[in-house]
Design a protein around this nucleic acid. Structure first.
Length: 318
DNA sequence: AACATATCCAACCGCAGGTAT
DNA sequence: TATACCTGCGGTTGGATATGT
């Protein structure tokens, strides 16, 4: 069938969003909830296509998005998940609920890929083998790759274990940094690199995010479509993250990590368990992508299990 | 200081899958 | 069943900024 292009209409604005447009969009979503994107430009008067509105919301304005400064744990998660899942950024983003697929994709393309390549080059130079990070099918190179992965796995496990101990979780708390603290902390926000544009506009986004705070607390009214249920749950979670900041308990933190790494989190039948994954992403697909318990074990289990499970999975990829 | 080059990342594009009619 | 529409995804682009010469 012939599909009309989405954004080729005249009078449809393209390019960067202005703070004013953001406020209009956020105000509208605040009132009606996300979803039914087709109606958004019409109802708001925004000269944007529905797709652009949805993208702006999901990638930038949506509450609970953590920006900049990927933590070590996040970085390792991305590396491992990319090795397991390939360039399925949405699936990877499902494991990092505070990050958007776009963010992860950008991070991978602009930083991690180069970093891994550099690592691989330095490693390969030792063995006088020329190959990039993805051509590790050669036995010798793969051995080196596996060793590095094992080290990474070990470090990730260690970090996660520490994260599960609230009193020690200062660094790992970044993994679940709540929206407000994220924005309120200039250092955490702009520590990756001082981008003046990002900073200045981040302030706008910050303000918009704060506008949403009241809404998160008051919970948006039940939407007319099915999406809103999940989205509402997501905002509840955001609000609870806010609670974490004001006085997080070990139970909350543990639950958060259970949500992050728990198999039950993906059981759609368990509608009562509100998790960070229950947003617009498709948790039910994750089970299809791979057995999540495998990854769970890989990252969290003891060494023996780690090597058996993790490496067999990695070998499978290669 | 001026220019060239590299880097980053928000946004766009096209395609695919799901759903409604 | 066929068609139209909506939404989500991954790849790519282009403008802004940083860095090097």
């Amino acid at each position: 069938m012939v599909r009309p292009p989405c954004c080729d209409k005249e009078g449809v604005k393209k390019g960067p969003w202005t703070p004013e447009e953001d406020i209009i969009l956020v105000s509208y979503i605040q009132e009606h909830g996300p979803g039914n994107w087709k109606a958004v430009p019409t109802n708001t008067g925004l000269l944007r296509c529905s797709k652009s509105c949805r993208l702006r919301w999901t990638n930038y304005l949506r509450p609970g998005i953590k920006r900049g400064n990927f933590t070590d744990q996040e970085e390792k998660m991305i590396i491992h998940l990319q090795a397991l899942l390939g360039n399925r950024w949405a699936a990877i983003a499902a494991y990092l609920p505070q990050r958007t697929d776009n963010d992860i994709k950008n991070y991978w393309n602009t930083y991690l890929k180069k970093k891994l390549k550099k690592l691989e080059t330095s490693t390969s130079s030792e063995s006088c083998l020329g190959h990039d990070e993805f051509s590790v099918s050669q036995p010798i190179a793969r051995g080196q790759w596996e060793r590095r992965l094992q080290t990474d796995i070990h470090m990730a496990k260690k970090a996660l274990s520490e994260a599960l101990q609230p009193e020690k979780s200062t660094s790992s708390s970044n993994l679940m940094l709540p929206l407000e603290s994220n924005f309120s902390s200039e250092s955490s926000f702009c520590s990756t690199k001082p981008t003046t544009q990002s900073l200045s506009y981040a302030s706008s986004a910050d303000n918009i995010a704060r506008l949403l705070k009241g809404w998160m607390k008051n919970k948006p009214k039940e939407g007319s479509n099915g999406n809103n249920t999940n989205v509402t749950q997501n905002y509840e979670t955001s609000a609870s993250s806010e609670g974490m900041e004001k006085g997080s308990t070990s139970v909350e933190l543990s639950e958060t990590f259970e949500s992050l790494f728990g198999y039950e989190s993906f059981d759609s039948s368990n509608s009562d368990s509100t998790t960070l994954f229950q947003d617009e992403s498709k948790p039910e697909n994750i089970g299809e992508i791979m057995p999540f318990s495998m990854l769970e074990k890989w990252l969290l289990d003891d060494g023996a299990c780690q090597e058996k499970v993790g490496l067999s999975e990695i070998n499978y990829i290669f």
